[in-house]
C-alpha cells in the first residue's frame, strides 16, 4: 500500500516536474508545478510530516503559485519567447545538470543502503513536540523569519509600485 502510494506520487512528481521545465507556456509550467508540490506534500505525509504537508499545500500552492499566476496574467507574457534559441546554452544546461546528477547519485546512493523505515506511530506525527521545539529552541530564527517576511513585503511593495510619471507640460 505504502509502496503503491509512493510510486504513484513519485511518478506524478517526476512527470509534472518535466512539464514545468519543458512546456513552452509559463502558465502550464505553473499549473504543473502545483501538481509536483502536491505530490511532494503526499510524500511528506508518508515520511511522517503531515503538518509540513498541509503547510506546503497552504503556503506554496495556495499562495506562492497563485502569486506567480497573478503576475503571469498581469503581464500576459504568453507562450514562447522571441529570438532564436541558443543551442549552446541548451547543451551546456543538459551537460551541467547531468554532471550534477551523477555527483549526487554517487553521494546519495551509498547512504543508509537497505535501511527500512519503521512504520509511522502517533509519537512521530504528533504536533505538540514540533510546536514546542519551534517555540523554544528555534524561537530566534522564527522571529527572524518574521522580520524577513516583513522586509520582503516592504521591498515588494516598493519595487512593484508604479513610478510617478510626470508628464512634461505641453506648450500652449
Amino acid at each position: 500500500m505504502e509502496v503503491a502510494v509512493f510510486a504513484v506520487f513519485a511518478l506524478l512528481a517526476l512527470g509534472s516536474a518535466l512539464v514545468v521545465v519543458l512546456h513552452r507556456n509559463p502558465i502550464y509550467s505553473t499549473m504543473s508545478l502545483v501538481v509536483t508540490l502536491i505530490s511532494i506534500a503526499v510524500l511528506f505525509v508518508l515520511l511522517g510530516a503531515p503538518f509540513l504537508a498541509a503547510l506546503q499545500v497552504l503556503v506554496y500552492t495556495g499562495a506562492i503559485l497563485v502569486l506567480f499566476l497573478f503576475v503571469l496574467m498581469l503581464l500576459n507574457v504568453g507562450a514562447g519567447g522571441r529570438g532564436p534559441d541558443r543551442l549552446g546554452q541548451k547543451i551546456g544546461a543538459v551537460g551541467a545538470s547531468a554532471a550534477f546528477g551523477v555527483v549526487m547519485l554517487t553521494l546519495l546512493w551509498g547512504r543508509f543502503h537497505g535501511f527500512e523505515l519503521s512504520p509511522l506511530t502517533e509519537e512521530i506525527v504528533a504536533l505538540k513536540p514540533l510546536a514546542k521545539q519551534l517555540m523554544t529552541t528555534y524561537l530566534l530564527p522564527f522571529e527572524m523569519v518574521g522580520l524577513l517576511l516583513l522586509a520582503a513585503v516592504i521591498a515588494a511593495t516598493a519595487l512593484a509600485k508604479k513610478p510617478e510619471v510626470r508628464l512634461p507640460r505641453e506648450k500652449t
Partner: peptide, 17 residues
C-alpha cells in the same frame, strides 16, 4: 487527522485555481 483545520484551509485554498 491531527492537522484537521489546517488541512481544511489547505484544501480550500486550492479553489482559486
Amino acid at each position: 487527522a491531527e492537522t484537521g483545520a489546517l488541512l481544511l484551509l489547505a484544501l480550500a485554498s486550492l479553489g482559486v485555481y
